[in-house]
Design a protein around this nucleic acid. Sequence first.
DNA 1: AATAAATAAATTGAATACAATTAAATTGCA
DNA 2: TGCAATTTAATTGTATTCAATTTATTTATT
Lengths: 148, 148
Amino acid sequence: MTHEQLKLENQLCFPLYASSRLIVRLYTPVLEPLGLTYTKYIVMLALWEKDNIGLKDLGDILFLDSGTLTPLLKKLEVQGLVSRERNLEDERNINIKLTKQGIQLKEAAKNIPEKIGSCINMSPEDLKELHRLLHIILENNKESKCPN
Amino acid sequence: MTHEQLKLENQLCFPLYASSRLIVRLYTPVLEPLGLTYTKYIVMLALWEKDNIGLKDLGDILFLDSGTLTPLLKKLEVQGLVSRERNLEDERNINIKLTKQGIQLKEAAKNIPEKIGSCINMSPEDLKELHRLLHIILENNKESKCPN
DNA sequence: AATAAATAAATTGAATACAATTAAATTGCA
DNA sequence: TGCAATTTAATTGTATTCAATTTATTTATT
């Protein structure tokens, strides 16, 4: 009745889930002065890289759906960082654009990755390898589903 | 103004966060027949491994605090899977115990890791290496904090 | 012993995630 | 063209997370 496979130690999901929360939690105090939460931050990262993008495409990049993004983008709009407007060519789509303020925020954010990096205890080689493996798992499992 | 460091591609946190949600999402349909959510599931994993444990110690294992665990354990209690009782030797503590039903559920859960494993597209070597790195990051950053 | 400090659980409130549903717009086909 | 199927956002409801506060209990100090 030991069921080695059920030991927490032997799970992949658990350290993934726990370390994700651990790392995201590091961002909270760093983002707070910018008025951003972690989810808002990755939305801004995506927009700084590709401005004027549809909600759907933004969701594909971030693995988030409209249920999460719609209220989030409305908040960013209230903060004056993005604008939301219907695409005139296809009114089902909504275009997200950075405002001048949203563009400017990038300067204030530029040191964040380094700041966070300095708080994570891990060798550069391990970090690089972890990064590589996480991208593999993301890429390979975009569409994965499990039957019940 | 490119700020390579701000590219999503170059973040560690983002693939960690995204793949964590991706993998946790795989569990939903598999756990549903057992009446478990993912968080309930890892609580049960911890208890199957070490029964009769304090909420604080359970939280230390799972990296969760009473704000998350208290309502969760109350639900598991309503489901008849665990009992919650004050520790008579130190009434600040609460002891969590599996009920007979909670113990029995382990049998129904024993095939879940294999089932999930078969849905994750990744080579065994990469899985093993990822597992190793995630444990390092967890172990090394339990106490990490970032100044704002 | 009396009180201050520390510890643990519970509570509160804000911010996600996400499945499922609804509503509007567009596309494809009979 | 007209309608069914598809696509996209928005909405709804449930379930976390987590910081911050409160309450109760215990430990440590004076």
